[in-house]
Design a protein around this nucleic acid. Structure first.
Lengths: 216, 216
DNA sequence: CGGTACATTGAGGCAAGTCAAGTTGAGTGG
DNA sequence: CCACTCAACTTGACTTGCCTCAATGTACCG
């Protein structure tokens, strides 16, 4: 797998790594830093379809389908490991088990989106925000990024709002309520979950439902 | 590919083909009839994450990840072509190009979900309903199921409501408005689009953005 | 010190939800 | 052939969660 690496990319905060509709020849694995995946609509609104954390694959869609369906932007400074798109095909020919892992990744992305769809389509505002926070908490904890009960969360409230389909104002008020209820606090780029079970319940999830994922 | 076929399944209306959380050893390709993919939440609500039309693959997730993330139910009588799950792995080993197609399918599913997420997360009620109707119109037209401008659409309004994240009542009123505006009519299990461009515009889409997909 | 970017708070309005009756049509059984 | 049931579709009245508008607060930075 190492042989496929063609370089490293360093992305500054706010810079676009991949653009919707573009067919990049490069694919990446995030090594450090965080980013957002999003789609924009004509009227300027945007929907965040996912958050890129260390270890995540970026650009699989363009690798498989030839074109990105969403943009990816760096939120913090990111370093990414770059591969060449043409290597994907040779991967399928020479390393079927790696190819299978890749498909597994695509299926997992689909799973994540499905869960988001349920949350956004059926749940109330509090539940949506709780869900997002809890998901962050789980993923970042699994990445060993938890220190003293705090996980780094360098996003803006607008990013969260665009992810859960609520207005910025309403998202803000919901976060305030969660904080005042002593459930979870997100301030200064860090998230603290005070009552994990309560948060999970608000989110309509079972605590501790984490799942493995193959690394590429 | 034919060699992998292990049988045919006939599903009656209302019957469950695959259950969320189950790890079926069977995968299917829909030959005829229509169905829904959905996830349920504890309180009884459900989110329709997709509609199964002829030609669609069913059970890819359980084939790749070992467990379905959503249920699949037949809406009309369906016939499905069954494969054995273990064949997927041999496919990756012996037919890399077929394996690639499979991954392509997974990526396309992801694309569809992403589009749904944008629609449900950012668009108004009319836009969501219009989007769903237009998507149906496109997909069913591509399947050559259009006759005299009518495409078959044997779902219930509740299915549509659960798909776009609106209440049944509101979905009904929106459909009525679309009908009275002379844009599209969905009655008696058939959809007629009177003003395609207007529908597309309401849906926030460009008319005629269709895409190819490999058949398995 | 202005300027910019993000977070916060209050007020008022509307889209969409809920509740509650009907209506229609397709079985089904007496 | 008519009463009855049941599932889906309609429609109206009322309620509310969320949105928009509009300030204000608070850092950080050149």
């Amino acid at each position: 797998m190492q042989g496929f690496k063609t370089g490293e990319l360093k992305a500054e905060p706010g810079s676009e790594i991949l653009a919707e509709g573009a067919s990049s020849t490069q694919l990446y694995t995030a090594l450090s830093g965080m980013g957002v995946r999003y789609k924009t609509v004509e009227d300027g609104r945007r929907q965040v379809v996912g958050f890129v954390l260390p270890g995540d694959f970026v650009g699989l869609q363009s690798g498989i389908m030839g074109e990105m369906q969403h943009s990816v932007e760096a939120t913090t400074t990111m370093t990414l490991c770059a591969f060449n798109r043409s290597n994907i095909w040779s991967l399928f020919k020479s390393q079927p088990s790696r190819a299978f892992d890749l498909t597994h990744l695509a299926a997992r992305e689909e799973q994540l989106l499905g869960e988001a769809l349920v949350t956004i389509g059926q749940m109330s505002g509090v539940a949506r925000v709780s869900w997002a926070l809890y998901r962050f908490y789980q993923r970042l904890s699994a990445l060993e990024l938890k220190k003293n009960g705090r996980v780094p969360l360098p996003y803006r409230q607008q990013d969260l709002a665009d992810a859960v389909g609520l207005s910025l104002v309403h998202t803000n008020k919901t976060l305030t309520r969660l904080r005042e209820a002593g459930v979870a606090t997100w301030q200064d780029d860090a998230l603290v979950v005070h009552k994990e079970n309560e948060l999970a319940q608000l989110a309509g999830m079972d605590p501790g439902e984490i799942s493995v994922r193959p690394l590429i």
